[in-house]
Design a protein around this nucleic acid. Structure first.
Lengths: 461, 461
DNA sequence: AAATTTGTCTATTTACATTTC
DNA sequence: GGAAATGTAAATAGACAAATT
C-alpha cells in the first residue's frame, strides 16, 4: 500500500497513472514513461528508479513494472542492466534521420555524410550508352527475385575486389546498405532478439532495429575496436543472436580491424553460433585491404557491399553474399520488402563493373578525399582526429569539457552542421566526447575550409 | 498429472517435449508444433486440441500452452478463435514468394501476375530523352528523404487522376506497393498488432506481416466484398489497429467496392480509430472510378499508388498520400528501409506523368488486356470467372469438387501455372474453391489461348 | 568475499468474452 | 437461452544471475 512516507523519499522519476482500469496498468506506466522522456522531464542517461521501488510506490506487482519497461526497451527508449539499473537511452532525442537537412540550407554541411559527387558524370555517361542498346525494354520486366544472373556475375567480380569469393548463386542484389539491413533484420531476426554491435555505430541500424523491436547491445571498445572479452561475456549472458560489424573504416570512428581482431570476432561468431552482418560500405577506401570476416566464416556471415558511397549515391544497389543456410529466407525477405532491386540501377552498376569504369570512379573519389583530408590536417592537426588520408569522414575526439551534443549545438549556431557522438551511441553506453565530420559533404573545398576554420575557432575559444 | 487414460483418448495432435529444463517449456511446445506443421504431421485447417486439454496432457499450466501458441500465431502458423478453437493456417505450406518461377520455364504462366510489357518501349524512349539533359548528374545525388519536390508534384497530379487531392507536402515516394507496405507496417505498427483485411488477399501483405509478427485478421465476405457487420464485430472484440483494403479490382477476386461500401468502411475506420491502408494498384483498370476511401478520411488513411503495374514493372516507384499525423513516422520509415526511392526511376515516372505519356501507356495496357479478356470469354464462358474486360487477372470460381490447391496441382501437371485460392487465404478463413488466372502474364496471345484451353479441358474432364 | 541490489525470465493465477451446444 | 468450452489478456509469484557495495 502506498504510504505518505514516499513523498519524503523522492524518486528520480514518478509515473503518473490513473488506475482507471480502462488502460492496463503496464501500458499506463509505459505511456507515462514515454511521455516524460519525449517531454524532457527525464533526460538521456538518467537513471530510473529500480523496478521494485516503482512497483512498491505504485502498489503493483514487480512484473507489471517490468513489462512496462520491456515495452519501452523494445522501442529503444531505455535500456536496463541487471545489477546496475535502467537508464534512458542516450539518443532518444537526436534520433532523427540523418539525411533530413531541411532548415539547414545556410549551414555548411559536415553532418550527413555524402560521398563525392563529381564522378556521377561517368554514371550519367554509362546510362546514355545503355539507352542506345535495344535490350533496355526487357530490363524493365520482372526478373528473378534475387537479381538477374548477369548482374550477380558482376556482383561476384565486385565482391572479389574486397577479398570475397562467392558463387553468383549466393549473391543477392538489394537496394543499398540500409535496405539490406532492413531485409536481414526482418527476415532472419524476431522481435525481441538481440544484436551486438559497437558502442558507437552507424545510426541506420539503430533506427531499423528500433522499428522492428530488435535490441542492440553495445560492446565496449578498447580504444580501437570491439573488446573481444566483453563481447564474449555479453554473448554468454545475454542470449545474443547476431552481430553487426564494420571492419573497414568503421562508421563513425574510422577505425579498421587488423587481421587478429577479425579472426577473434569470427571465433566468437562460431562459438556462439551468431549471425554476422559485415558492412563493407567503406572498404573501398582502404589502401591495404584485410580479408573480410565473412571470408573466414562464410556459412555464418553476410557481407554487404553497397555501391552508394563507392560509385554513386543515386545507384540504390548493394550486393550481399548469402550463407546457403539463410539464402531462402533472405531471398524471401528481399521479395517482401522490395519485390526486386531497381533493375535499371542494377544494370548500370553491372556495366560499370564489367567495363572497369567502376574502379576508375573509386580511384577518383579517393583522390578527391585525399585533397579534402589535407585540409583537415591543415586546420585540425592540433587535435586528435581519427581517420586517414582517404577517409570520407573523420572522428574528432573532443577535449573533456565538451559533450558531442554541446559541440554540435555550438557549431550549428556558428553555421556548421556536425554530428555529435550521441547520435551514434547505442543504448546508454558511455563514450568519450567526439563528433563526426563528414568532410566530403560540402560542395566545394572552399566551403570545407570555412567549415573547418569555424570548428577550429570554436575549439580554441 | 498425466495418466495412462490419455493414451486411449487420442488427441488430434500431441506435442513431443522433453522437459529437459534446458529449453523453456513454452519454447519446446512451440518448436514441436512448428516442426509438425512443417513436416505435414498436421495439415492446413486442422483443428488443434484445446489449450486446456494440452496443458492437462503435458501437465503444465494453461498459460504455458497459451504462450507457445502465441509464438506460433505471430509467425502466422496458426490462428485461434475464442470459443471455437485453434487452427493451422491455410497457407503455411504455399507461403512462397510469388515471383519465384524457377522450375516453371516450361509452364504457361497464369500464376504470378505480370503487367503487359509491350509499353516498356515508351519508358525506354523517355529514358533516352532524359539522358540528353545535362541535369542527370544531380539526380544521382542524395535528396530529401520523402522525395524531390518536382517528383512529388507529379505524384500529386497522378493521384488526382484517382480522385485524390493531396498537397505535394503530404506525398511520400517509395519503391513500389510491397515496399510501401513494409514501410507502413514497420513504422506505424508494432509486433503483435492486428490488421483486418479480406479473407482472401494479396499475399505480399501476408508475407511482410509474418516477417514483422503482425497479425492479419480475416474479414468474411458477403459474396462481394468485406462484410461490414463482421468487420464491426471484429473491431469491437479484437483490438484491431489497422485495415488493409483494395477497393478497386481487388486482388485476387477482381471485385470493386461501390460508393456505399467505401463509406461504410470509412465509418468503421473513424469509429475505431484505425489506420487504413488503401491499395490503389489496380485502380487504373477501372472505367468508372469511385472516389477512394482515403478521400473521405484523409486524416486516417494512406493511399498507395504504385506505377509498377500501370506504367512499368521496372519502375520501382509508388506514391503515398500521408495523413499529417503519421507523416513523420512514415518519412522516417522510408529512410530506415530505403534511404530514398531510386531517383532515376522517380525522374522517369515524373516525366512520364508530366508529359502525358503515362496516360497513353495506361490506355494501351487496357487495350491489350481487353484483347486478352476476350479470349477468356471464348474459353471459359461456361464458368463463373470474376472480372471484366480490363482485368489483369481473373478469379475462376471452381466447381465444388475442386480445391484451389488440387486445381493448381492438376494444372501444373498439364503445363499451366495458376494460383489456387489457398495462396491468398488469411489464417484459417474458409472460402469457396477458386483460382487466380494472371491472363496478362503469358508472353503472347497464343500462349494464353493454349493455357486457357488446357484449363477448360481440365475442368470438363 | 559475502550480502544486497537489480533486471530478466518463466510459470502461475485470475478474470473475461465469445462461441458452441 | 443458459451452461460449458475455449482462447486471450493482465497481473502475480518465484527463481536466477549479474553487478554493486
Amino acid at each position: 500500500m502506498p504510504v505518505n512516507s514516499f513523498e519524503y523519499y523522492p524518486m528520480t522519476w514518478k509515473p503518473h497513472i490513473s488506475k482507471s482500469g480502462i488502460v492496463p496498468l503496464y501500458a499506463e506506466i509505459a505511456q507515462s514513461l514515454e511521455h516524460d522522456i519525449r517531454d524532457g522531464v527525464i533526460r538521456p542517461n538518467d537513471k530510473l528508479p529500480p523496478q521494485r521501488e516503482l512497483a512498491d510506490y505504485l502498489d503493483v506487482n514487480l512484473s507489471t513494472v517490468a513489462r512496462a519497461f520491456k515495452l519501452c526497451t523494445s522501442k529503444g527508449l531505455i535500456s536496463g542492466e541487471t545489477g546496475r539499473g535502467t537508464f534512458i537511452a542516450s539518443d532518444v532525442i537526436s534520433n532523427l534521420p540523418m539525411l533530413n537537412e531541411s532548415g539547414l540550407e545556410h549551414c555548411i554541411n559536415l553532418g550527413a555524410s555524402h560521398p563525392p559527387y563529381k564522378q556521377n558524370k561517368y554514371v550519367a555517361l554509362m546510362l546514355k550508352q545503355l539507352t542506345k542498346k535495344a535490350s533496355i525494354d526487357s530490363i524493365l520486366e520482372y526478373s528473378e527475385v534475387s537479381g538477374r544472373l548477369l548482374h550477380k556475375r558482376s556482383g561476384k567480380k565486385w565482391l572479389s575486389e574486397f577479398g570475397l569469393n562467392v558463387s553468383a548463386r549466393n549473391i543477392l542484389i538489394t537496394s543499398g546498405l540500409q535496405n539490406s539491413l532492413a531485409i536481414i533484420l526482418a527476415s532472419l531476426f524476431q522481435y525481441g532478439d538481440k544484436i551486438a554491435t559497437n558502442a558507437v555505430i552507424y545510426p541506420g541500424i539503430k533506427n531499423i532495429a528500433g522499428n522492428l523491436g530488435i535490441q542492440l547491445i553495445p560492446v565496449p571498445y578498447t580504444g580501437r575496436t570491439m573488446d573481444v572479452k566483453s563481447l564474449l561475456q555479453i554473448c554468454k549472458n545475454d542470449n545474443i543472436k547476431g552481430i553487426y560489424v564494420i571492419p573497414d573504416h568503421h562508421n563513425p570512428t574510422t577505425i579498421s580491424m587488423d587481421v587478429e581482431e577479425r579472426s577473434a570476432i569470427a571465433d566468437v561468431v562460431k562459438k556462439y553460433n551468431l549471425i554476422c552482418m559485415e558492412d563493407g560500405t567503406y572498404s573501398f577506401l582502404s589502401e591495404q585491404r584485410n580479408p573480410p570476416i565473412t571470408s573466414i566464416i562464410p556459412e555464418q556471415s553476410i557481407y554487404i557491399s553497397t555501391v552508394s558511397n563507392s560509385l554513386s549515391a543515386g545507384l540504390r544497389i548493394a550486393f550481399l553474399s548469402m550463407p546457403p543456410d539463410y539464402s531462402e529466407e533472405l531471398i524471401n525477405g528481399n521479395s517482401n520488402i522490395n519485390v526486386m532491386a531497381p533493375p535499371l540501377e542494377a544494370e548500370i552498376v553491372s556495366q560499370l563493373i564489367d567495363s572497369g569504369i567502376a574502379y576508375k570512379i573509386v580511384e577518383e573519389k579517393k583522390q578527391e578525399l585525399n585533397a579534402r583530408n589535407k585540409i583537415v590536417e591543415k586546420y585540425l592537426s592540433n587535435y586528435n582526429v581519427l581517420g586517414d588520408s582517404h577517409s570520407q569522414f573523420r572522428w574528432l575526439l573532443l577535449p573533456e569539457k565538451w559533450t558531442g551534443k554541446k559541440f554540435e549545438q555550438t557549431a550549428k549556431v556558428h553555421g556548421v552542421q556536425v554530428f555529435g557522438c550521441e547520435r551514434f551511441i547505442v543504448g546508454s553506453a558511455v563514450v568519450k566526447p567526439a563528433a563526426r565530420l563528414a568532410i566530403s559533404s560540402p560542395k566545394s573545398l572552399e566551403l570545407l575550409e570555412r567549415g573547418l576554420g569555424t570548428l577550429k575557432e570554436i575549439l580554441t575559444e
